[in-house]
């Protein structure tokens, strides 16, 4: 029969590899299949992770799955960096910052999560986009923040909420049922 401990480690490794593969596929879908709406790309990896985090917080509490979502954000971020010729770690840092913000927001405020979903999505996308822009600003060229906020950040947040809310509601309904 053998010792059950090594088998558990093997299973864990396989599950982790499956998660990595899943995040690579999601990143591939984001950079190739997702349409740009009004010239603004849809950050699919971020939205998927955020919605899943919100549903998990609702079902299991703040701390239960945040570590896992952070790990998934790291995998997805590195995959995005490889696919988009950005410095390795750029997307990972931006994604993880957004996830931490959303988890803190939802964990601290004792409000119905359905109400919190919109500010959580908007705030997280803001952190993600500003994070990436800061990296661009510090490594490539100094951005002008006011026009960037109006022309890029505001549409990106609006689009993320528009796409993210149906995704969140769908995940919520599916996991609850």
């Amino acid at each position: 029969m053998g010792d059950p401990q090594p088998r558990r480690v093997e299973v864990r490794i396989i599950i982790e590899l499956a998660r990595i593969a899943g995040m690579i596929v999601l990143a591939l879908v984001q950079v190739t299949l997702m349409p740009m709406l009004g010239g603004v790309p849809v950050p699919l990896v971020l939205l998927w992770l955020l919605c899943w985090l919100l549903v998990q917080i609702e079902m299991h509490g703040t701390l239960a799955r945040t570590a896992l979502v952070l790990r998934l954000a790291f995998y997805g971020g590195v995959a995005l960096d490889f696919l988009t010729a950005m410095r390795l770690g750029s997307h990972a840092l931006a994604l993880m910052s957004a996830i931490v913000l959303a988890a803190l927001l939802c964990g601290q405020l004792r409000v119905e999560l359905l109400v919190l979903a919109i500010p959580a999505l908007a705030g997280a996308v803001l952190v993600y986009a500003v994070g990436l822009a800061l990296i661009y600003h510090s490594t490539t060229i100094a951005l002008e923040w006011q026009p960037y906020a109006v022309a890029v950040l505001a549409p990106a947040i609006a689009l993320a909420v528009l796409v993210g809310m149906p995704l969140y509601l769908m995940m919520r309904w599916r996991l609850r049922s």
Partner: peptide, 13 residues
């Protein structure tokens, strides 16, 4: 092979 994927930069591969 890859078009602009996010809001940071306008870059293609």
């Amino acid at each position: 092979t890859v078009r602009t994927p996010d809001v940071a930069r306008r870059v293609i591969t």
